[in-house]
């Protein structure tokens, strides 16, 4: 990979981190501006960027309610993303969807499901469409993102079986952060309880399953590239388990209107009192880790890395300001878009 590409990857990771920190800070700096539930990708930046860096023109993806990082990497205007999270008319989805339901079909991001696992069959259908198109066009693949919890959904297994049977060009990317909200994987997954990687579930569907360090963007890139190549060749899907550590709580506090929302401590501390686990994860934070790696390899110098960070900060400051200034949609607009 050339240096420009490496620097591009690092830049996207920093942009995601800065964006997510702005979302988190909004709860303190602009109380009441974000409603409902947000879910942050901090800690998963390397996995997201490593995966999306494999994309070629025409490739598509679907994701979950933890979805801010994908459009940021794809080049969607962060102003529009923030405005959506603030419920404004200039939002990416006009204020209809909010944080959990981003979509930017023009960039190949077809959307998300707010319900665990339910986007997987949809992405599989996108893969079916791609397979048909691939017969007459340069082959494209579909990246399907979901969490470890979704692998206990029937929809996950039904989708993998069909994709394997029909050799659909899909890469199933499980971002395994080891928590279903506050429940640890070994409490709810027979494989995790047995100390096995969750990629072994691919065996049930006669497809390759691999586990990769989701904190290493280059490792993720290599693994997803191989899976995407396989899919592009028409050899069918792969299950990639990307092991990440979510650095924030599952989402902001769940409370009825009137109660100030904020992010509580990570569940490792709040529920299990395990500060050591969380601090170890912080020491392995993929963003500074990749920065250090690129500096050591001479790809970046400190000044350039700082410039990238500064540019991301300025971009996200502008996104927050844009979103705050954007008007709310007209109430009557609520009944638009119910039917095509």
């Amino acid at each position: 990979m050339d240096n420009d590409r490496l620097i591009w990857m690092y830049t996207q990771m920093v942009r995601i981190r800065e964006f997510e920190e702005r979302v988190k800070r909004t709860f303190d700096e602009h109380p009441g501006v974000i409603r409902g539930h947000t879910h942050l990708a901090d800690g998963a930046e390397a996995s997201i960027v490593g995966s999306l860096a494999t994309m070629q023109p025409g490739d598509q993806l679907m994701a979950t309610y933890r979805c801010h990082g994908y459009p940021i990497t794809l080049g969607t205007d962060t102003k529009a993303i923030m405005a959506e999270i603030y419920g404004r008319t200039d939002g990416l989805c006009g204020g209809y969807g909010g944080s959990m339901h981003l979509a930017d079909p023009g960039r190949g991001f077809l959307g998300t499901s707010g319900i665990v696992g339910q986007g997987i069959p949809q992405a599989t259908g996108v893969g079916y469409a791609a397979q048909i198109r691939n017969r007459t066009q340069p082959p494209t693949v579909v990246l399907c993102f979901f969490g470890d919890g979704a692998s206990k959904q029937g929809a996950f297994h039904e989708s993998l079986n069909l994709a394997s049977l029909w050799k659909l060009p899909v890469v199933y990317i499980m971002e395994n952060n080891n928590y279903n909200v506050a429940t640890r994987s070994e409490q709810e997954d027979a494989n995790a309880a047995a100390g096995e990687p969750l990629s072994v579930k691919a065996k049930a569907h006669s497809m390759p399953g691999v586990t990769v360090d989701g904190g290493d963007p280059l490792a993720v890139h290599a693994t997803v590239s191989e899976a995407a190549d396989r899919a592009r060749r028409g050899d069918g899907p792969t299950l990639v388990e990307s092991k990440v550590y979510r650095l924030s709580a599952h989402g902001n506090l769940i409370a009825p209107p009137g109660v100030p929302l904020h992010y509580e401590e990570h569940e490792a501390i709040r529920v299990f009192g395990n500060r050591d686990e969380y601090e170890a994860a912080l020491r392995g934070d993929p963003v500074p880790r990749f920065r250090m790696q690129l500096i050591e390899q001479g790809v970046l110098d400190v000044a350039r890395a700082d410039e990238i960070a500064q540019a991301a900060r300025e971009e996200m400051d502008a996104a927050v300001q844009f979103a705050l200034d954007s008007p709310f949609p007209a109430p009557e607009a609520a009944t638009n878009f119910v039917y095509a």
Partner: peptide, 16 residues
Amino acid sequence: ALDATIPYSQPMEAYV
């Protein structure tokens, strides 16, 4: 409620 999926943005949500 009006015949719409519940929108995210507060003014539209209240409207339906």
